[in-house]
Amino acid sequence: MAYSVNSPAGKVVQDILNDLPGLMAVAVVDATSGMSLASHSNTPSINPDTAAAYNTEVVKQKQKAMTALKLSNEVIEDILITLTTQIHLLKLASNGSKFIYLVVSSRDTNLAIARDVLRANAEQLN
């Protein structure tokens, strides 16, 4: 357990775990540094801190793409990535400083449920 429920990030991780007990991994990540503020993994092979670092680049690239396209009044709601048997979700906090990274198995959870849980929990992140 790499979090304390006393911090806001740790509380978000705990709440997501309560909503989706079967999740594979979850992390709250600082978007500037790519380091995770709180994380939890139910899958030994997934280190959410490693994944957080790479996924920060994914978020940054998309933000660069939006700047290049001059989409100035647009905001990234979330980024959904489908793999063969897993779904990876990145949900940005409204001020863009942090994001939640969630990995679920597509057999246990569908995209809509996972998105809904993240949307509900991202509000307490700022």
């Binding site: 939006m66 647009e74 979330d78 980024i79 959904l80 990535i81 489908t82 793999l83 063969t84 897993q86």
Partner: peptide, 12 residues
């Protein structure tokens, strides 16, 4: 055995 299938990015 995992392959990247799609990436969805909903903006506002």
């Amino acid at each position: 055995g995992e392959r990247l299938e799609d990436i969805l990015i909903p903006l506002r």
